[in-house]
Design a protein around this nucleic acid. Structure first.
Lengths: 369, 369
DNA sequence: TTGAAAGCGGTACCAT
DNA sequence: ATGGTACCGCTTTCAA
């Protein structure tokens, strides 16, 4: 299939810098200066260039850029190393999404941190010192990071928050699962599972924590809508401690044998089940929990946990990368928040989440530093 | 490691074809012919080139390859135009996933077809005639396409099936939602929603259809597990006809007032609800349906439909593109089937699926033809 | 402030 | 069977 020489191509070839240059009758060098905020250009000219680029729908050719500049686009990743499975999956999602762009010079700079202590701040500053074009973080203590995030943004380095947010900063966006929706779904399921007039209890971390509070709220709002005259008779704060959850649960369940359902709004479901087992209540109480990790598999299979609300960390990681990449390359500014829908894991769809959580040891090979 | 006086190798630069050429004292053209199995080269020379490439650890620079090879990577897309929402979403998923690679020269060639008649075959042959590197299809009548798919594969054009499959062909993979899982989840939910000894009915299309049969199977297997002594008292085949569904439902529901739940295993849920309304049974029967389209929104909001099992067409499209792309670029061969988990849509997560289904008119701009 | 031109690592094609 | 070279779209440097 040959094209006649000289015949203008009908199908619209992607517009390049050259096209912009021709359209404005200037040189390609000028286009470059305008597009990349380089000094030494008349502001007027720059405006014109940006406008025509917008109009013609210019999109940079990454291959050419990489080839020419030999400078790779590096994105820093600073997420916790603790809470093993959750952040592992986020990392996997980020690395997997990035891997498609590896041949084009996209690099990740992975700087995980231990959640305790100052390490988080250090990791972030460490990353900022490198030659990076963007950062993905999951701030454990947003307050400590606030000024640093602002500094990064001021320097033109976009920051994307994943799983958690850094309110009051100009981070590009945050990717997370709406905690209220999380609680709402749990509430709706519980309401549907239990007969009218059922009594339930909630096990959470600390209601003062925004995330936890929202989940509890969502549950409380929705449970009664689906379980007429249903009632939340107790809310336990376990502060993510196993022993505390166990003791408090045991105590409440003993005093309140009419409880028919428990909503565990954190990943702290194991001690709750243990308390139920010790009191011989398994099978009598529906448990809906949060998050997902291997130890939960037998509990779901056996029905001890009826359902769990999953935050899909892998997906969050994928979207985090995609968002920052698209912003850097195509200038597409995402909405201020990206909320994704939590998944509901039950016995009959458990298998899907098992394979997805498979560890891949080699996921970092050739990456980072 | 010095080779020639006056031509010191810069340290640690990745070896390119030029390096190979210099090392062997041949031209870069020869290197090209050797590396890419092109004709017109002495087998001896080829061997030498391949050996030195191995030794020096030559790795092609993808960016340069994209840039240089005029022909961009084009992927054909041939999916139905009917069943509006479902395939629209698949298309959107494909286009959105592809858009990130547009700057890298990835093109889509979109050739939708009307489901009736020969158009499907024509669309496929049409695509094969073009210069494409891969195809994504959603075969309505796999049998008709079988020989063509084989032909494509023989010619080195990978074929990915999305939503449906083409059994007995060497298509690269198929992306779909396991219908059995689909039914199982519905069964589990229904079992949890209803008290013991409940009676339910199933409305399906044709049990002979593999997809429909599997869903019914999944439901029947799982419902009793979660609803002790629960029973499926009736299975209606409505052949995707509204009127047939309405009449049959009405008839059964009248004769069988004890029915507490209905599982609609196809998108044909509207007439079922209508029958219930006409008989004053709304609120007395739990309905779990399949798929999702705008008309269902008020039904879910009002609780007339308790939950619907959603096949996430957008996600299917995304994965279809990603799979074929990764195969073409990175040579990663996917598993023979990619099953994704169906989503459960209920009232409290309804909002997430509303925004995701938003039509974006411009999704094709600058793409395909 | 702007223009012109030399690469970056391949591919494709013409000449030898 | 081989060598030579004009691009691809962009960055960078040097000249005007």
């Amino acid at each position: 299939m040959e094209k006649k020489p000289g015949a203008p191509r009908k199908s619209s070839r992607p517009v390049g810098m050259k096209d912009l240059a021709e359209a404005l009758g200037v040189s390609i060098g000028t286009i470059d200066r305008a597009l990349h905020n380089k000094p030494g250009i008349n502001p007027e000219t720059r405006k014109k260039v940006l406008r025509i680029a917008q109009i013609l729908g210019y999109r940079p050719n990454m291959a050419a850029r990489y080839l020419s500049s030999r400078r790779s686009l590096t994105i820093g990743v600073s997420i916790p190393l603790e809470i093993a499975y959750f952040y592992d999956d986020i990392r996997d999602g980020i690395f997997e999404a990035a891997s498609a762009f590896e041949p084009l010079g996209v690099r990740l700079l992975y700087r995980p941190f231990m959640v305790l202590g100052q390490e988080e701040v250090e990791a972030f500053e460490d990353i900022l010192r490198e030659d990076i074009q963007g950062v993905v973080i999951s701030p454990g203590y947003p307050a400590l990071l606030k000024s640093r995030i602002e500094k990064a943004v001021r320097r033109g380095v976009p920051v994307v928050c994943v799983a958690t947010d850094a309110p009051g900063t100009r981070r590009l966006t945050s990717i997370s699962v709406d905690p209220y929706a999380n609680g709402s779904i749990a509430g709706e399921l519980m309401g549907q599972f239990l007969p009218a007039r059922s009594k339930v209890m909630i096990v959470t971390g600390m209601q003062a924590t925004v995330d936890h509070g929202q989940k509890v709220q969502g549950f409380r709002q929705n449970f009664p809508r689906f379980c007429s005259q249903g009632e939340v008779v107790s809310v336990i704060e376990a502060h993510d401690e196993e022993s505390e959850a166990y003791e408090k649960c045991r105590h409440i369940l003993r005093r309140n044998p009419s409880i028919a359902g428990i909503y565990v709004s954190t990943a702290n479901s194991l001690p709750v089940i243990r308390a139920m087992e010790d009191l011989g209540l398994v099978g009598k109480i529906k448990v809906i929990s949060t998050d997902f990790f291997p130890a939960m598999v037998p509990l779901i299979e056996s029905g001890k946990i009826a359902a769990t609300i999953y935050q899909r960390p892998r997906e969050q990681g994928r979207i985090a990368f995609q968002t920052i990449y698209r912003f850097l390359i195509e200038g597409i500014r995402p909405p201020a928040h990206i909320q994704l829908d939590p998944a509901i894991i039950m016995r009959s769809n458990l298998e899907f989440f098992l394979v997805k959580s498979g560890r891949r040891e080699d996921s970092q090979s050739g990456w980072g530093k």
